[in-house]
Design a protein around this nucleic acid. Structure first.
Lengths: 366, 366
DNA sequence: ATGAAAGCGCTAACAA
DNA sequence: TTGTTAGCGCTTTCAT
C-alpha cells in the first residue's frame, strides 16, 4: 500500500466519466441535479452515469480538499475554546445538538482551542482559521471573557456565534431568570413562605463570573417580591469541602426561623445544603424542601429533587442553526436566541410539613 | 468582500516569492528547513524571504486544502462516535487531553458521529473518511459495541485507537480492578472489616455493559479475599428515583449486622447509598464510611468522600499519542495503555466508629 | 445541454 | 542548492 492517503479507493469524477464515455462535468451534473430534461436519450445516459458511479463506489463523496480549493468553502464549522480551563463548558448533549443540526447540512465539526492571547489578537486569528479550514465559529467561552476578545471576533470576516453567553446579537443562551422565577413560584404555590436562595459557588459582594449567577438570583427575588415575601439569600463562594459544614452551621444559627424550602443556584449547592441540613438534625424533605438548577438529567440521580434542567441539546442546535443562517447570509446579525428550561421531578415538590399536617385530617375524612 | 472564502488574507507562497524574486519552492524551503548552508549570500537571502513572508502575514500557515491535495494527508484526526446516545462518553478533560497532544503535532480534531449501521459497514466507511478528511480515528464507543464494528474498523486502512474500551491492542483504558482493590485495601487498613460493595447501575445476573462493571467488582473481591474477609455485594440496576429507598430498605433489613463501610461502583450509587443510610437513621461517616469511583473531581463536590477519580485527561493524551504512533508507523499495533486512577480525599477515610471509640480514651490520656 | 480548458495553492519530481 | 514543471480532484467559465 504505497498510497499514503487515507482513501484506499480514490475514485474520481474522471474515472466515472471515462467509464461512461462522457465528461467529468456531465457526471457531476447528473449526480448533482438529478434529471436534465425530458429528452429520452439523456435520461438513459444519466441512468448509466448514476449506475457507473455507484458501481465504482463514488456515491457522491467528492474529495473535500479539492472541492475546498475551488469553492473556497470548507464545509466545516469549529467549536472555539480557550486552552484555559473552566472558561467554557463541553457538554455532551450540547455537542450532540450541534452535530445534529450540522449533519443536515453536511457540515463537519472541528474543535479548536486557542490561548487567550491569540483569541484577542485580531491579526493572527484569520490565519488560524485559514489553516483550520473553517466556515464559521461557535464560541464556547463565557466565563471572564478577556478584554478585546469580543472586538477581535467581530473584526473577523467569518461568521461567529456565542454559546451560553449574553451579547447584543449572534448568541444563544438560557433563560435563567425566568426559570428561577418559575421554580420559586411553584414552591410558593405549594405553600412555602420562607424560601431560601442558596449559592455556594459565587462570592457575595462582586459580580459573578457567569451571567447565571446574577440571573438565577434575580429570578428568585422577582418571584419572592411579587408574592409579597421577603428574599432570604445565602450566597458565598465556599470551597467544596467546607460546604456541608457551612450549610449546617448556617441552619443551626437560624434555628429560630428556619426556611421550609430552599432554591439553589446549582445542584452541587443543593446537595451540600441537604447534607448540612441532615447533619443539623432536619428531616428531608419534611423540614426542608430543596429544589435547584441542574445541567443534566443524570446529575439528578444525585438527589431526587425538583429541578430546572438546562436544555443543552437545544442550545447546541440553536447555536448551530444561528451560525448556518449567518453563513448563508453573511453580514447579518440575528437576535439572541434564549432557551427555556425543563422543569423536572415536579411531583417531588411537597408542601411544608406543618401545612401537610394541617391538611391531613381533611383527607382522612374522605 | 466578494471573496466567499474564509480567509480575508490569501497570501500565497507565490506572493512571497514574487516579492523577494525567488521561486515559490525556495520560499517554502527557507520557511521550512531553517538555514540552508554557511554560504553567506544564501543566508542573507533567506533572511529576506523570512522577513517578506512575515510582512505579508504568511507566517507558515499554508492553505491546508492545497497541502492535502498534494500530500494526501489531512493533518487531522477524528473522534468517532455513535449517533446512538450513551454508547460513548464525551468528557471535557478527555478532549482537553486529546487536543493537548495533537497540538504539539499541529493536528486538528474533528468530531464524527455515525449511525451504528454505518459503523459496521466496512464498504462505506472509507468513503466517509475520505470526505471527512481524517488521518486517524479515536473511537469513543465502548458500550455494547455492535457485532461487526471491530472487524469493520480493523479492515480500514486508516489507523484507529479505541478509547476506554478493552481490546487486544490499539486501545487505552483505565485500570479499574487495581484501583478498586487499592481503595478497599485502604479501607481495610483503616480498620474496616464489613465492607459493602454497592452498584445500583449494573444488573445483578448478566454481564455489565461496560468493562468497569466487572472490573471494579473484581478488584473489591480481590482485596476482600486477600484480607480473609467475606465479600458483601449489593448489585442491582435500580432506577434513579428508587435508589435512595432501595438503599434504605436494604440497610434496614440488614440492621443486625450492618457494614461499617461501603465502596461504590460510582459516585451516583454512593450518593444514593448515603441518603438511604441517613433515612435509615445512620450517622455519616460514623456509622457508614462510603468511598467510590468518580469521573471528575468536581463531581466530588456532591459528597466529600474518598474516591478513585478517572484520569480522563491522561486517557485522552494516551489515546492521541497511540494514534500518532500508528500514523507515523502504519501497520503497527501498539499494546494497550492502561491508566492508573487518582485517589483523592484520602484524609476523609475514617476508621469504624467502634474502633474510634476504643481509641479515644488512649488519645485523651495524652 | 454538453465538452474543453483553466486554475485553486501547494508539493513531489525532476532538471539545471 | 535552486528553479521549473506537472499535477492533485474538483468547479467555474467559456465555447460549442
Amino acid at each position: 500500500m504505497a498510497n499514503p492517503s487515507a482513501n484506499s479507493d480514490p475514485v474520481t469524477l474522471e474515472d466515472v466519466a471515462r467509464r461512461v464515455g462522457v465528461s467529468a462535468r456531465t457526471v457531476r451534473r447528473a449526480l448533482d441535479g438529478g434529471r436534465v430534461a425530458a429528452w429520452d436519450c439523456t435520461a438513459r445516459r444519466e441512468e448509466a452515469i448514476r449506475r457507473a458511479a455507484e458501481e465504482l463506489g463514488y456515491v457522491y463523496r467528492p474529495n473535500a480538499a479539492a472541492r475546498t480549493m475551488t469553492t473556497g468553502r470548507f464545509n466545516s464549522v469549529s467549536l472555539l475554546m480557550s486552552t484555559r480551563a473552566g472558561q467554557g463548558l463541553l457538554i455532551q448533549e450540547m455537542l450532540d445538538g450541534i452535530c445534529d443540526e450540522l449533519e443536515e447540512w453536511n457540515l463537519h465539526l472541528s474543535l479548536i482551542r486557542l490561548p487567550d492571547r491569540q483569541l484577542t489578537d485580531a491579526d493572527s486569528l484569520p490565519k488560524v482559521f485559514r489553516e483550520g479550514m473553517t466556515d464559521g465559529l461557535l464560541i464556547d467561552y463565557f466565563n471572564e471573557i478577556p478584554a478585546g476578545m469580543e472586538a477581535a471576533m467581530n473584526s473577523l470576516d467569518i461568521p461567529t456565534v456565542w454559546i451560553n453567553s449574553q451579547h447584543p446579537a449572534d448568541c444563544a443562551y438560557f433563560a435563567d431568570a425566568g426559570a428561577a422565577r418559575r421554580a420559586v413560584e411553584e414552591m410558593i404555590k405549594a405553600g412555602h413562605r420562607r424560601i431560601l436562595y442558596a449559592d455556594f459557588s459565587n462570592p457575595a459582594g462582586q459580580t459573578p463570573r457567569h451571567y447565571t449567577g446574577t440571573e438565577r438570583r434575580r429570578g428568585y427575588e422577582q418571584a419572592m417580591t411579587a408574592a409579597g415575601l421577603k428574599p432570604l439569600i445565602l450566597q458565598e463562594n465556599v470551597p467544596h469541602l467546607n460546604r456541608v459544614a457551612f450549610a449546617r452551621d448556617w441552619l443551626c444559627q437560624h434555628r429560630q426561623s428556619l426556611p421550609t424550602a430552599a432554591f439553589c443556584y446549582h445542584i452541587s449547592s443543593a446537595i451540600s445544603l441537604r447534607e448540612g441540613a441532615r447533619d443539623a438534625g432536619l428531616r428531608l424533605p419534611d423540614d426542608l424542601q430543596v429544589a435547584c438548577f441542574a445541567d443534566r438529567i443524570p446529575d439528578l440521580a444525585y438527589a431526587e429533587i425538583p429541578a430546572m434542567v438546562n436544555p443543552w441539546h437545544d442550545l447546541g442546535r440553536a447555536a448551530a442553526r444561528l451560525l448556518l443562517a449567518k453563513i448563508a447570509a453573511p453580514g447579518t446579525h440575528p437576535a439572541p436566541v434564549i432557551l427555556p428550561f425543563t422543569w423536572v421531578n415536579a411531583d417531588r415538590l411537597r408542601p411544608p410539613a406543618n401545612a401537610r399536617k394541617a391538611a391531613r385530617p381533611a383527607h382522612a375524612t374522605l
